[in-house]
Write a protein that binds this DNA or RNA. Structure first.
Lengths: 148, 148
DNA sequence: AGCCAATGTTGGCCTAACCAACGATAGCGC
DNA sequence: GCGCTATCGTTGGTTAGGCCAACATTGGCT
């Protein structure tokens, strides 16, 4: 039993920013592990989901919608295109742009990821009742939207 | 700032892990900015606060209490000792250990950081009522303790 | 035509979080 | 006392996420 020899100090334990960060660490670890089962990372899921929901779009538009930096979109689209999950085609109407489309394989992969991710959310939120989960989601949503 | 041409997809917007991560990003940005006003980072605050609350301790013990990796404790203690805020002295009773002590200057700095940090928490939680803040803190605490 | 904005892309930066390995030391069982 | 194991500080990584700057190409506006 080599458990820590005591709790973290009060000042740290109750600090909302620190609690948020700790929860994010946990959530990210669980989610990353889940996605890794399908060889994916968070950016991959975000892009697949966005293209699937809104249809083909340029990389810049995807970045704007997901909050992912343009340069990081490039790398993630590279990965996904290399796996045949997305397709990158030049836009004939605007030769600056690439049109990103999801392939049938991409939809299948997305369904897998949705399933894995749902399980991950459940593991993350395990100690909370459905009502608690809704409350948490609501509070966090208000926070992020306020600072948007 | 960016000019999003629409909201992120439903699947991403309501994903608790993603909301948590987004909130953590915001919180960390605000906190980092606040601490930077005193030339400090998060690890610095955590160590100062821990030594102040529990008294002198070895670096390994500090790491266990704060959740900071031993190797990262080394670097942070280096920083703080160089500024005269902590003192690193060999433990005469166990020559493997260093005893870390907070100096008067360290206490002063800690008080400054406490003040800056309180303002940061308030900015972070701005959209939430006192009751909401308590609820959020409670929910997050339950999450992190469950996964501890 | 001329200027400004947007796009894809490359390349880089910084930090947090983590891990492996090392020599030195301590502690324990025997 | 001896040997094994654990612990400590430290060095030196790695990974990924979130950024920013710059560039050439292209388009839109006037």
């Amino acid at each position: 039993m080599n458990t820590p020899e005591g709790p973290p100090p009060e000042r740290l334990r109750t600090l909302p920013s620190r609690l948020t960060n700790g929860a994010a660490l946990i959530a990210n670890r669980i989610v990353d592990q889940a996605l890794a089962q399908a060889g994916a990372r968070r950016y991959h899921y975000a892009l697949l989901a966005t293209v699937e929901e809104y249809g083909p779009a340029s990389q810049a538009a995807l970045g704007r919608r997901t909050g992912i930096d343009r340069s990081d979109v490039v790398a993630a689209v590279n990965d996904l295109a290399a796996q045949g999950l997305l397709e990158r085609a030049p836009d004939p109407d605007d030769r600056r742009r690439n049109i990103i489309t999801i392939t049938p394989a991409g939809r299948k992969r997305l369904a897998d990821l949705d399933r894995l991710l749902a399980a991950a959310q459940d593991a993350y939120l395990a100690p909370l009742s459905p009502a608690d989960r809704r409350t948490l989601t609501d509070l966090l949503t208000r926070l992020v939207e306020h600072h948007a």
